[in-house]
């Protein structure tokens, strides 16, 4: 028996919005520790890694490890039937071929349930090595989304260049070029407004706008985003989901032909 209850359905809606650009379907691996999802997009350029800790749920029970393959568009349809502040309970029997989502309104006057067929997805599990990154940048998630959106108008790629002075986002295209420089904040009123750079060595890498834009769909989940970079390894873009877990995206850099 698997049962996971989350007080506000909106959190799950935000998670779905953040991954459905990149993935059509995905396996949700459920264990006592929580729910994990790890999948590459079809072109194997990016990887989504989601972890929701069991202690972040209002109620969580997982008697046996369970992998549920789900179509994310179908899941989104179901979650669109819930109100943001509905409590959601995800339920499945051991070895079941369906999963049930139950939504309860705050006053309990409306209870709805939706049963969805599970899919048999043959997804491979990947071991992600621990990397000591040359540069780790923390910045407001909204600012990162804004920069990616702004620069995407001008080119297909964004060069991210990190030094101890700050981080620079650059692009160029048919109409010209654009640069946005962010300095490390020396003082800030709120922690979520800070730009913090931990640099061992300067790094400059180029990434496709299309994927960076997809990653910023996670912006509603977190105030801050963390970018981790080293030469010749994938960029990690991480959003911490408060009290619940994290959503990480990995993106292969563009390389010289």
């Amino acid at each position: 028996m698997f049962e996971a209850r989350l007080i506000n359905s909106v959190t799950f809606k935000k998670v779905l919005d953040a991954i459905k650009d990149l993935l059509n379907e995905a396996s949700f691996d459920c264990s006592e520790a929580g729910i994990q999802l790890q999948a590459m997009d079809n072109s194997h350029v990016s990887l989504v890694s989601l972890a929701l800790r069991s202690d972040g749920f209002d109620k969580y029970r997982c008697d046996r490890n369970l992998t549920m393959g789900m179509n994310l568009a179908s899941m989104s349809k179901i979650f669109r039937c819930s109100s943001n502040d509905d409590t959601v309970t995800i339920k499945a029997q051991d070895d079941a071929d369906t999963v049930t989502f139950m939504f309860e309104s705050k006053k309990q006057e409306k209870i709805s349930d939706y049963e969805m067929k599970l899919m048999n997805l043959d997804q491979e599990h990947l071991g992600i090595p621990d990397t000591d990154f040359s540069c780790v940048i923390r910045m407001p998630a909204g600012e990162f989304a804004r920069i990616v959106r702004d620069l995407s108008q001008f080119g297909e790629s964004i060069v991210i260049s990190c030094t101890k002075e700050g981080v620079k986002f650059s692009t160029s295209g048919d109409i010209g070029s654009a640069n946005v420089k962010l300095a490390q904040t020396s003082s800030f009123e709120k922690e979520e407004e800070a730009v913090i750079i931990e640099m061992q060595e300067p790094v400059t890498l180029t990434f496709a706008c299309q994927y960076l834009n997809s990653f910023t769909k996670a912006t509603p989940l977190a105030n801050q985003v963390q970018l981790s970079m080293s030469d010749n390894v994938p960029l990690v873009v991480e959003y911490q989901i408060p009290d619940l877990g994290h959503l990480r995206y990995y993106l292969a850099p563009k390389i010289e032909e």
């Binding site: 350029v45 990995y250 563009k254 390389i255 032909e257």
Partner: peptide, 14 residues
């Protein structure tokens, strides 16, 4: 020019 890299090879298949 630059081409898009792939993730294959960065991660080990378990």
């Amino acid at each position: 020019g630059q081409v898009q890299g792939r993730l294959d090879g960065f991660f080990q298949v378990l």
